[in-house]
Design a binder for these strands. Structure first.
Lengths: 183, 183
DNA sequence: AAATATGTACAGAAAAAACTGTACGGAGTG
DNA sequence: CACTCCGTACAGTTTTTTCTGTACATATTT
């Protein structure tokens, strides 16, 4: 019995998909998303039509609990939508196919969160440092350091303002004026 | 003995810094950088002048080995530079203060890496799928699936081309035309 | 050349994160 | 209402990552 020269078409299709799914999940991993979650997104991306938790579990060979938390993760990132089908009782999930949108949502969510954490901390500290500057009991060379810190924080706040405006340009799609979708 | 009403200026300064450092490291954590590495960056950011590994170790209360790997991490991300001072034998490291630049470098590094992983995987799979389409021995309904995959991958490649051009606009500073540094 | 500093590779320990199975609440069905 | 089905909270296990201490290679000083 000779070796089968022409691999079965189904297997070839499967392999081609698998390679891309691996790359996608590796890529998402760079952005702080678990590899499993990335693979799940990949599976949903190539799936024709939405999937149930049980199908995901089957497809990835993982527990249903994991599928539940992973898919919730993806929904939070707006990379996957919960969809509804008449007569289907189970929850159905479908990949978001528009990667421009996905990109925008992903970074909007991440960056806005980051900005908000930092800005509030910095404003609070900035207030304290200004008070310190006005306090006559505080040592002069401490004030010098505080003054330097104030400048650093002020510069950082300017940067965060910029980042916020950058996110705005993503959300408003203005970014596509500068960098259009098709070359 | 009453409670000390006016906290010592040094301590107040320290606290104001600490809060900001925490926020910075939390923020960096969102981008997949360890919290320790984030704190190290924060320490370097507020430090006046560059630091040695031993000073970092002292400041963060961690092992020198950790400082060595963490700071290398930051250097790779171009968030910290190794600097040289006449007469100083130890390696000196200094935070990059320009956050616009830091942002640009960070995402350029990450995104270019991601794009490259994905594009090569997708091109390879695309080639295989096209071969599969031309193969007469392959079942018709497999071909239908392959055709759909080809479309999905093609769309994804277009997106990656866009992402590459977006990174270009960061590197060339053109992004600042659309979203200027100061409002 | 010997002695002293300095940074990092590496292996093992500690900590954190991911994953699973069970249990349970709530929604839908008969 | 009883029964079934579905998704997820939670505790415990497994896996991965981070951190440390020792050992060593390289560079500098004596």
């Amino acid at each position: 019995m000779g070796v089968k020269i022409n691999m079965n078409g189904e297997k070839r299709l499967e392999q081609a998909r698998e390679r891309v799914i691996d790359a996608i999940s590796q890529n998402m991993h760079l952005y702080g998303v678990t590899e499993s979650v990335g693979r799940l997104y990949g599976a949903l991306y190539f799936q024709e039509g939405p999937m149930t938790l049980d199908e995901m579990k089957e497809e990835l060979g993982m527990s249903k609990t994991s599928m539940s938390t992973s898919v919730r993760n993806l929904v939070d990132l707006k990379m996957v939508d919960k969809v509804w089908r008449k007569g289907v009782r189970k929850d159905l999930y479908q990949a978001e196919y528009d990667w421009y949108q996905t990109f925008t949502d992903f970074f909007t969510i991440k960056w806005r969160a980051g900005v908000s954490i930092n800005v509030s901390a910095m404003e609070k500290s900035l207030g304290e440092l200004r008070l310190l500057m006005e306090d006559e009991q505080v040592d002069e060379h401490i004030k010098e350091s505080a003054q330097i810190d104030i400048q650093k924080i002020t510069a950082a706040l300017e940067y965060y303002d910029w980042l916020n405006r950058l996110v705005d340009s993503f959300e408003s799609q203005e970014i596509f004026k500068l960098v259009p979708k098709k070359q």
